[in-house]
Write a protein that binds this DNA or RNA. Structure first.
Length: 545
DNA sequence: CTGGGGAGGGGGCCC
DNA sequence: TGGGCCCCCTCCCCA
């Protein structure tokens, strides 16, 4: 007994799931584009993918070997077995496909391309004709690195890493690889150019190599063997890294696009593509997730703690407001300088929620089946109201801006007071801190720390998140942020299996099991497991109400 | 319904 | 560069 269409139906289902991002557990980065897919499918299609997806949820492909449009074709091919040719099925297209297929070790596809090229009487891509002709073999660099590499060829760091990384497949090059090798840098530049014609030079001096693959000291489980609190509860609208959807793209050179179901979306192509705010997005993840349920009571999505890592919907985040991000970062930093206040970023968060209102901080949930919303697919992030069109939403957003401006002004006084206190405390004992900040009053023990601090005054933030484009002053903060995108929670509780993004959180959490309450209120004797809860408790004592 | 506590998560920043 | 800590936001639970 055999169902004749079983395989076909299965593949069809999988492809539909990919389109919705359902159960997608890997993101493939190609230049400025992000594709979501299923590890199993990729692993089954190529030994190369198999090695890549084994340990990583985010994979960077060599942009010299494959570009977004070609990879889209390839992904379609993997999921359908059909080759949907781009524009005119030109030889160039086949050539590029062959190069990419060889690189990715998709033998069937490369054979197909070779046959097609032969039939057309075209020479197979060789060192002379391949888009990558002339490239040294080393640069095949099957980017199966466990680190997130700098996708920008100009990075010293990236180059260094790529040289250092041991290529696990180096010895397994098939005959397909004959067509891979070799290109000049011009060729790779062309291929590597972003959609807007840039190859990311803006970031060329930035060192974006990240090692997100922290291992829990206590956990032997992999990311996939997550606790019940983990991403398994994902809705069809979310994916393992669907937090990537929190993208608000500064521009296509530094920020990849989320390609919904492998469908490349053009930047700013129309009102349908709304952007989601970057700043404060994680904080709002619950909000965002709740939008799906609105106006129902939002229990389901929050029921499992930790879900918020994964419950950001699949809204398409590319959009006309892409430029806002940088503007917003700038604004934050201006405030930082103006306030001279260390934690102005914090206010930046709350303000970001207001600041975002001046942009289109909305998204459209492409794959979300609206039930309670009706046609109100355009949702205002801060208040959760849904609107049938972007125009109506934009009009609504305007009303937010003003009211939140008032809040901001009121907050300014409080901030000034806090600033005074902060200044006093930071200058206290400055005798042992000879390195003084030229902008604010703070002083530090060593020049490196001072340099680090002075970055907080910069108007630009040198470390962008590869996924959402949010900018950070410190690489470590950005790395940590990336982990939250990817749902990487390396620190596991041995008692309950709950996982955390940070060691410190785990330490805090362990007190739940031990019953230890080291923080005691001096006023009432109340004890707390977490210092922050003592602090909020103290506010209760001191607040006038 | 409300206030308080517990706890998860994010970002900033210093060491 | 990463760890640790601080601060904030938020949600859930319970009295």
């Amino acid at each position: 007994m055999e169902l004749p269409n079983h395989a076909k139906q299965l593949l069809l289902q999988l492809n539909q799931q990919r389109a919705k991002g359902f159960l997608c557990d890997v993101i493939i980065v190609v230049e400025n584009a992000l594709f979501r897919a299923h590890k199993n499918i990729l692993a089954a299609s190529s030994i190369y993918f198999k090695s890549l997806v084994l340990h990583d949820n985010l994979i960077n492909l060599d942009t010299d070997m494959v570009n977004p449009s070609v990879f889209r074709q390839i992904l379609d091919f993997i999921y359908t077995g059909k080759l949907l040719l781009a524009d005119q099925a030109s030889e160039n297209n086949f050539s590029a496909l062959l190069t990419a297929a060889s690189y990715l070790q998709l033998h069937d596809l490369s054979a197909l391309c070779r046959r097609k090229l032969k039939r057309n009487g075209k020479p197979l891509p060789t060192k002379a004709t391949s888009p990558n002709a002339g490239r040294p073999l080393r640069n095949q660099r099957l980017s199966s690195t466990p680190v997130i590499q700098n996708r920008y060829s100009g990075s010293k760091e990236s180059g260094k890493k790529q040289q250092l990384v041991e290529d696990p497949l180096k010895d397994k090059l098939s005959d397909d690889d004959l067509y891979v090798g070799g290109s000049n840098r011009e060729g790779s530049l062309n291929l590597g150019a972003g959609k807007n014609g840039s190859n990311g030079n803006l970031c060329s001096d930035q060192e974006l190599g990240l090692d997100l693959s922290k291992k829990s000291p206590s956990a032997s489980t992999t990311q996939d063997e997550v606790s019940p609190n983990e991403n398994h509860q994902e809705s069809p609208q979310s994916a393992t890294a669907s937090t990537a959807n929190s993208a608000s793209f500064e521009d296509s050179t530094t920020n990849p696009q989320i390609l919904e179901g492998g469908e490349p979306m053009e930047m700013g192509v129309g009102e349908e593509n709304q952007s989601l705010p970057d700043t404060g997005q994680r904080k709002n993840s619950r909000h965002v997730a709740r939008k799906k349920e609105w106006p129902k009571k939002e229990n389901a999505l929050d029921s499992g703690k930790g879900d918020e890592e994964a419950t950001v919907p699949n809204g398409v985040i590319v959009g006309p407001s892409g430029g806002y991000n940088s503007e917003h970062s700038f604004k934050c930093k201006v405030e930082d300088v103006e306030n001279g206040k260390e934690n102005s970023e914090e206010s930046g968060h709350s303000e970001s929620e207001s600041g975002q209102t001046s942009a289109n901080y909305v998204y459209r949930q492409e794959s979300f089946e609206p039930v309670a919303y009706g046609d109100n697919l355009y949702v205002c992030i801060p208040c959760g109201k849904g609107f049938p069109s972007s125009e109506q939403l934009n009009a609504h957003v305007e009303t937010h801006t003003e009211e939140e401006l008032y809040i901001k002004e009121e907050g300014a006084y409080i901030k000034e007071e806090a600033e005074d206190l902060s200044t006093q405390s930071s200058t206290f004992g400055s005798e042992s801190r000879p390195f003084k900040c030229s902008v604010c009053e703070k002083s530090y023990k060593d020049p490196a720390t001072l340099r680090q601090h002075e970055k907080t005054h910069w108007l630009t933030r040198p470390f962008p998140c590869n996924i959402c484009g949010k900018m950070f002053t410190q690489r470590g903060t950005m790395t940590r942020h990336m982990r939250s995108h990817l749902g990487l929670k390396p620190f596991a509780c041995e008692e309950c299996g709950m996982r955390f993004t940070r060691q410190y959180r785990l330490t805090e959490h362990m007190r739940v099991h031990s019953g230890e309450k080291p923080y005691e209120c001096q006023l009432c004797g109340g004890k707390f497991t977490q210092q922050r809860n003592l602090i909020s408790h103290l506010r209760m004592h001191t607040s006038p109400t």
